[in-house]
Design a protein around this nucleic acid. Structure first.
Length: 264
DNA sequence: ATCGGTACCTGCACGC
DNA sequence: TGCGTGCAGGTACCGA
């Protein structure tokens, strides 16, 4: 479910966690755990205080007082919730000195991990999609021969974009999802860089996109989905020219675009 | 090194 | 009503 704007919204809504002490932890599903068994992880967390909560791409990093991190990735359907009752897909329950933190994930594509240091797979990601300077972005584009849509989804190229915002940014830049990255001209590359920044910023301001079930830690839905210009609008008229939006597969992912406004 | 395809898992909407 | 199919914000891993 969650791309950069949704994860950012979740992280902001987790602000009440800072300063809380984890009284006890329970992990119910091995599959979403990374490294270590459930009991060992619970033992590592018990008694620790949460010092900070921040986002790194689509990862959520909770630093613990005295060292170590609770690292969470929401996958497609992961949720972190500050209230509610454990359900069928609740895989982690952290009892706090005040309140509770639940990790819920029906598809189990997400993960939760305790680690002394920030894991390598998190550190090796590319620059943040909201922070990358244009020159660095353009230089990296020039080096890659893959299709632009696939590249935007590659977290080692840029961290934070996912299927919704890649499609939306390409539309804003007038670039076809199958365009070869290295052949995108400077002018278009600048529009893409600007489009990425704009669409992510607007989506954060709207609390993210709630397509089916995404909510922040307080259970609030986002409303950026009503501002999507191409994503899941196949057959509907382009907001710019009226041409029917098309849907194709690129790198096995649905890609939505306007065949008239977006050139290869 | 880079690229493309597949696998992982559950739930929902749809057509028959 | 039930069943099969296709689709869904994700990454990881394999072979070419």
């Amino acid at each position: 479910m969650p791309e950069l704007p949704e994860v950012e919204t979740v992280v902001r809504s987790l602000a009440p966690l800072v300063g809380r002490r984890i009284v006890s932890a329970e992990f119910r599903c091995r599959r979403v755990l990374r490294g270590g068994d459930p009991d060992q992880m619970a033992a590592c967390l018990a008694g620790r205080r949460i010092a900070s909560v921040r986002r790194h791409g689509k990862f959520i990093l909770m630093s613990l007082q005295g060292g170590g991190y609770l690292v969470v990735h929401l996958g497609m359907t992961g949720r972190l919730l500050l209230s509610g009752d454990p359900g069928r897909h609740t895989h982690a329950i952290l009892s706090l000195d005040r309140g509770v933190l639940l990790y819920d994930d029906s598809r189990q594509f997400g993960c939760i991990q305790f680690s002394q240091e920030i894991p390598e797979r998190v550190l090796k990601l590319g620059p943040d999609a909201l922070e990358v300077p244009f020159e660095r972005f353009a230089a990296a584009l020039r080096r890659r021969k893959t299709r632009i849509k696939a590249l935007l989804l590659d977290q080692r190229f840029l961290r934070g974009l996912g299927n919704i915002y890649a499609d939306e940014a390409l539309f804003r830049a007038g670039i076809h999802p199958l365009a070869v990255a290295s052949r995108v001209r400077a002018g278009r590359a600048r529009r893409l860089w600007g489009g990425i920044h704009a669409v992510l910023s607007e989506a954060i301001a709207a609390g993210g996109s709630s397509i089916s079930d995404y909510v922040d830690a307080e259970g609030r839905k986002g409303f950026f989905q009503v501002s999507h210009r191409v994503y899941q609008r196949a057959g509907a008229p382009c907001v710019t020219c009226g041409t029917a939006i098309r849907r194709i597969l690129v790198a096995q992912r649905s890609s939505h675009f306007c065949p008239k406004c977006q050139k290869r």
